[in-house]
């Protein structure tokens, strides 16, 4: 690990300035991904700006009645929040399906969205990887890619996004809020992670130096019984082989509306739009699903 300076900030503007000032600066939140990758030699910041003391923690009601989750809220606090559990149970489930109790106590919402892929070649600087060093090639394409992308990949990169939380957020059409020195902005989660194309190093559309301040959820989900289901190689403490977040609005036995997002299958939470279209307006029964019974 390279030597670095460390600063803890309490003002958003101070954080933005420190990061803008120096190319090698990075925000540090829970550190569960950044410190890990620094140990692997994948990340080598020269300055860490610790954002955990910024006034960005907690879950509150937004002006439109939706939920606003502060960027530094820990994953544990998101999952345990009564309103999240009541209105967006799939989000609580998704967060709880990720990592471990210890890691969720450290990990934050902002850091979770920006965690890097778990592709083994990416984490090993002695291997070629277009995402880590553009133009070096993708070791996974011809290598072991058992758990890599099945949707939206390119020859340049077949990695998946590892976040469980983001899958549920995608199903709820959440919006990411950020600040920069030139002002703030918001990005719908469905547009937050761009297609891989030939720029796998371009993982989000967040402006450079931007600080995520919050994620907002709409006033109401389609239903109060949204669910998250994760399949993995062991029963807990493992990344997804595949996961699904689904929210189904049913009225009189008819699927009024439906949102489905898949995890572990693409470089972004994958909205299953055709499946949604297929189900929408149809009968809400098991038989609807091809191969179901």
């Amino acid at each position: 690990m390279r030597e670095f300076a460390y600063q803890r900030v309490t003002q958003v503007r101070e954080a933005l300035t420190l990061v803008a000032e120096n190319d090698g600066s990075r925000y540090l939140a829970g550190g569960t991904n950044l410190v890990d990758l620094m140990k692997c030699g994948v990340e080598a910041p020269t300055r860490l700006v610790d954002v955990r003391s910024l006034p960005l923690g907690g879950v509150r009601e937004g002006a439109d009645g939706g939920l606003v989750i502060g960027a530094t809220t820990t994953n544990s606090d998101v999952a345990a929040h009564p309103e999240v559990r009541r209105r967006f149970p799939a989000l609580s489930q998704a967060v709880l399906a990720g990592a471990s109790g210890q890691l969720r106590n450290m990990a934050t919402v902002g850091g979770n969205l920006l965690q890097r892929t778990r592709c083994a070649y990416f984490a090993d600087p002695s291997q070629a990887c277009n995402k880590r060093v553009p133009g070096t090639g993708c070791s996974a394409v011809d290598g072991a890619h058992h758990n890599h992308a099945v949707f939206g990949w390119s020859r340049h990169c077949v990695a998946t996004h590892p976040s469980d939380m983001a899958v549920a957020l995608a199903a709820f059409d959440a919006v990411v809020h950020y600040e920069t020195l030139d002002g703030g902005g918001e990005i719908p989660l469905s547009e937050f992670y761009p297609p891989v194309g030939d720029t796998p190093q371009q993982e989000t559309v967040l402006p450079s130096g931007a600080l995520i301040t919050a994620v907002s959820l709409p006033k109401a989900a389609l239903s109060p019984w949204s669910r998250y289901r994760k399949v993995r190689d062991r029963a807990s403490y493992a990344f997804a082989n595949v996961s699904i977040a689904a929210d189904l609005g049913v009225h009189d036995g008819v699927v009024r509306d439906v949102r489905i997002a898949l995890g572990g299958v693409a470089s972004q939470p994958w909205r299953a739009r055709s499946a949604e279209a297929f189900l929408r307006g149809g009968p809400a029964s098991f038989g609807t699903v091809p191969g179901g019974g």
Binding site: Y6, L28, T32, D36, M106
Partner: peptide, 9 residues
């Protein structure tokens, strides 16, 4: 997990 927390943090 204390291995991913910096002492300064």
């Amino acid at each position: 997990v204390s291995c991913l927390m910096l002492a300064v943090a």
